[in-house]
Simulated scan of single mutants.
Amino acid sequence: MGKIFYIMGKSSSGKDTIYRRLLEDRELALRNIVLYTTRPMRQGEQPGREYYFVGEETFKEYEAQGKIIESRTYQTVYGPWIYFTADDGQVQLEQRNYLGIGTLESYLHMKDYYGEEKICPLYIEVEDGERLKRAIRREELQPEPKYAEMCRRFLADEEDFSLENLKKAGIERHFENIELESCVKELKTCIQTLQ
């Protein structure tokens, strides 16, 4: 029986890079779970790789069909952006292990949907000052930087990923992403132990 290894962390903690590195590791043989979003695609992203970029009508269709596992709407400075996970046939736990990525809230919904024994949380942590520097560098690379949205996300993460919320969710182990290679190696070892 397979498991879903679920990466979480505050914005600019390196979770997207870590996610890609773990997916590329043939020894782990993890299959990705692609989430959906109504937000605009960032430069360098590809549909079906980071997310399925869809309109709000797609979300409503899945919702009407009862296929939404979890969803969250962020009131951004550009209007509401919806992120969601749908039971769209991607996950077949009887056949393989998966790697997911999301928020603490989405992790809790996935745990409720698939069962606690099937979901393994992987919480990535980076010191706040370093995260802010990384966020600014990433935003500077965008054709139209969205600094106000970057700041909103940074502040929201403080509340969403508070130590109290992590503890309530049963997430006690944190993986520090000070040096990428060491963090990826530590995560790989953890995943291999739990597979």
Rank of each mutant, 00 (worst) to 15 (best):
L99W: 10
Q142D: 15
G48D: 01
Y62T: 01
L99D: 07
K133N: 12
K15E: 04
E158M: 07
L35F: 03
E57W: 13
C190Y: 15
I178T: 13
L166W: 02
L108M: 14
T17H: 06
E181L: 12
R131N: 05
E57P: 03
C151G: 09
I18T: 12
P121G: 02
G44V: 07
Y114C: 00
G48L: 01
E56D: 10
Y52R: 03
I69C: 05
K111S: 08
A156T: 00
K111N: 07
L108A: 14
N165D: 01
T103I: 00
E125M: 08
K146V: 12
C151R: 11
I69E: 04
K60I: 04
I82Y: 10
G89Q: 07
K146L: 14
I119K: 06
L163A: 14
F59W: 10
Y114D: 00
E45A: 09
Y19K: 07
Q46H: 12
Q142M: 15
R153P: 03
R31Q: 11
N97P: 06
I4E: 04
Y19L: 04
N177G: 00
F154E: 00
N165S: 06
P80V: 12
T189M: 05
W81V: 04
A86T: 00
I4H: 05
V34D: 02
L35A: 08
G79Y: 14
K67F: 09
H109T: 07
V126C: 08
L180S: 06
V184P: 05
L99G: 12
E57N: 11
E181Y: 11
Q95L: 15
K146A: 15
